[in-house]
Each structure stands twice: as structure tokens, then as C-alpha cells.
């Protein structure tokens, strides 16, 4: 368990220093943990699990500057996941309580298979065409920002800004999806 914290934290620190591969690995590992965490608490609505995983990963990414690297990364990520789950229940009018201390348990769950997130696609579909293409094109193994930008008719700098705006818009739309 603490092993996961050590790994996640080391990857995140390297990611914050600009190591994209480490950052990707951190999010992937976190995604597995999130899937298990949500699956266990949402047995009533398994179809929503992947939506929440994706919404939480987006939030982790966009809010990463609020992580204090002197503190536990897992506790921070768990707080984000917990907030997103409670928010999800609030929107669906479900009354539930979540213990604040269970971030230990957050590290120690079995690993269900990833499903497909539908809400993200819905949110994506509502973005302008150029932004949508850009989000789909920037695979870490595939196109670079400069290449993806060129395909959408943008400079690298413009593509950077457009991608960031698109991700923020996606996060906002997913949050309001069933509000």
C-alpha cells in the first residue's frame, strides 16, 4: 500500500518536472486505483464507473497545482475522487456518506476491467470541431502537439492553448452533464 504511494508520488513529481512519460504512467496507475475505488462504491450503477474515472482524472490533471508535494499524493487524489463521487451522488439525488479516512482502502482494491466512458464522448461531441480533433489526435505514442496542431491548421503554440481550453471545457461539461 505505502509502496503504491511511493510509486505514484515519485511518478507525479517527475511528471510535474516535465517528464510526460512518467506523468502518463502516474495517471494510468491512478486510473486503475480509481476504477476499483468507484466500482466498489457504485455497485448500483456500474455503467457510471468509467465516467467518474475519466472525470476524476481530468480533475486531477487540471487541479494538480493544488497538491502540496510535502503531503501524501494518495490522500490528495483520494480527496479529489471522494469529492467527485459525492458530487455525482448529489446530482443523481442519492444520499450516501463516505468516510474521509478510507484512502488506505483506496490503495488496496482489486482491479476491474476498464469500461468505456460515454459522458466524455458526449462532452467531446459538444466541443468545436477543431478542438475535438485535437483532443483525439494527441496520443503520446502518436502525434506530437505540433503535428496534431498542423493537422488542425494551428501553430504549436495555438494548439497548446486550444488543447488546454478543450480539456477545461470537457471537465466543465462532464460536471454539468446530469446536473
Amino acid at each position: 500500500m505505502t509502496d503504491t504511494e511511493t510509486r505514484l508520488k515519485a511518478l507525479m513529481l517527475r511528471g510535474l518536472d516535465g517528464d510526460a512519460a512518467a506523468y502518463r504512467a502516474c495517471l494510468a496507475l491512478l486510473g486503475v486505483r480509481l476504477r476499483a475505488y468507484f466500482a466498489r462504491r457504485m455497485s448500483g450503477a456500474p455503467g457510471d464507473v468509467e465516467d467518474l474515472v475519466q472525470e476524476t482524472l481530468l480533475a486531477v490533471h487540471l487541479k494538480r497545482s493544488t497538491w502540496d508535494s510535502a503531503q501524501s499524493f494518495t490522500a490528495w487524489a483520494h480527496a479529489v475522487a471522494r469529492y467527485k463521487l459525492i458530487d455525482h451522488w448529489r446530482r443523481r439525488r442519492v444520499r450516501q456518506t463516505l468516510p474521509i479516512e478510507d484512502h488506505i482502502d483506496f490503495l488496496a482494491a482489486e482491479e476491474p476491467d476498464p469500461g468505456v466512458g460515454l459522458e466524455l464522448d458526449r462532452a467531446l461531441a459538444s466541443l468545436p470541431e477543431r478542438q475535438r480533433r485535437l483532443v483525439g489526435d494527441v496520443k503520446l505514442t502518436g502525434l506530437s502537439l505540433a503535428e496534431a496542431g498542423a493537422r488542425a491548421g494551428m501553430s504549436e503554440g495555438a494548439a497548446k492553448v486550444a488543447l488546454h481550453r478543450a480539456l477545461k471545457a470537457l471537465a466543465e461539461r462532464m460536471r454539468r452533464a446530469d446536473g
Binding site: G15, L16, G18, A20, A21, Y23, R24, L27, A28, G31, E50, V53, Q54, L57, L58, H61, R64, S65, T66, D68, P114, V116, G117, L120, D121, L124, V135, G136, V138, K139, L140, T141, G142, S144, L145, K160, V161, L163, H164, L167
Partner: peptide
Amino acid sequence: MRTDDLIDALARDAEGTRDPAPP
């Protein structure tokens, strides 16, 4: 969209901008 594809997009975005910390 697959979660892995989303993570790719997030990792690409991380190279670009970075927000200031709360202080």
C-alpha cells in the same frame, strides 16, 4: 473515448501549461 486516450491527451497538455500553486 477510452480512458487511455484521455490520459494521452492529459499528458500532452502537461507539457504545455502549468498553473501557479495556491500561495
